[in-house]
Amino acid sequence: MIDRLHYISQEPENGTHLTAIKVALEAGAKWIQLRVKNQPKVEILQYAIDAVALCQAYGAKLIVNDHPEIALKAGAYGLHLGLDDMPIKNARDIVGKEMIIGGTANTFDHIKRRVSERVDYIGLGPYRFTTTKQKLSPILGLDGYAAIIKQVKLANIHIPIIAIGGIELGDINAIIKTGLYGVAVSGAITHATDHATMVRQMYAQLNSFNLKEV
């Protein structure tokens, strides 16, 4: 089961990715993506090993961004790959048949590609401008989501599609009404003044919609 709320790690002002992940877990997040850029693989592997242990302690699942070998070595639950990362087929050869693999998309054609690659879920975005991601794809916004999801339904495609990119608490209701399955957030949780309340309110909004009705 793919969770409807994904937390993507980022370094807080004081601490590391692990600091931020622990805060999110303590707040009630259950699906964590470790996204570490521009650091040696040996350091990312150690982050992944430690993050897997943290997630297991809180009954959560860890997804590793970009690095299939690290996801496998660390015993992660899943792997997430961007459009310019390793092809899904090659990554599947590395991690095996059981590991969850998610893939990024920005257009309906990307979604069709991801479906043909047999990913388990799709991260669709960005919703709005975000400083978290380099080489940002064209902004989609609500109208972009609505148009793409309409094409998805007409094509009879059934796969969890997660909105991503600068999403805040106040955006969730409108995003889910377009027909998306869930949201991925980073700063909205990392920089919250009350992390537990933020996560609880996000889940409340996500769970207020019956998936069969959107």
Rank of each mutant, 00 (worst) to 15 (best):
201 Q>L: 12
117 E>H: 14
172 I>A: 04
141 G>D: 04
187 G>R: 11
187 G>E: 08
193 T>L: 13
164 I>W: 03
84 D>F: 15
144 G>C: 02
38 N>A: 15
19 T>Q: 04
174 A>R: 12
44 I>P: 09
67 H>L: 08
75 G>L: 07
20 A>T: 09
31 W>A: 06
200 R>I: 10
147 A>Y: 04
66 D>A: 12
11 E>M: 13
108 F>C: 03
145 Y>V: 04
27 A>I: 10
61 K>P: 00
75 G>H: 06
152 V>W: 00
117 E>Y: 13
108 F>G: 05
46 Q>K: 15
190 T>E: 08
29 A>R: 00
3 D>R: 07
19 T>D: 05
95 V>M: 05
22 K>H: 13
59 G>N: 06
160 P>W: 00
156 N>M: 14
33 Q>Y: 02
183 V>I: 13
26 E>S: 14
79 L>N: 01
198 M>D: 00
60 A>D: 00
146 A>Q: 11
129 F>W: 10
133 K>H: 07
84 D>C: 13
33 Q>I: 01
57 A>H: 04
144 G>K: 02
75 G>R: 06
141 G>R: 01
119 V>C: 05
190 T>Y: 00
67 H>W: 11
11 E>K: 15
94 I>G: 01
50 D>F: 13
91 A>L: 10
57 A>N: 08
63 I>A: 01
63 I>D: 02
203 Y>V: 05
95 V>L: 10
40 P>N: 10
167 I>H: 05
102 G>V: 12
18 L>Q: 01
32 I>F: 01
86 M>R: 03
86 M>K: 05
22 K>F: 03
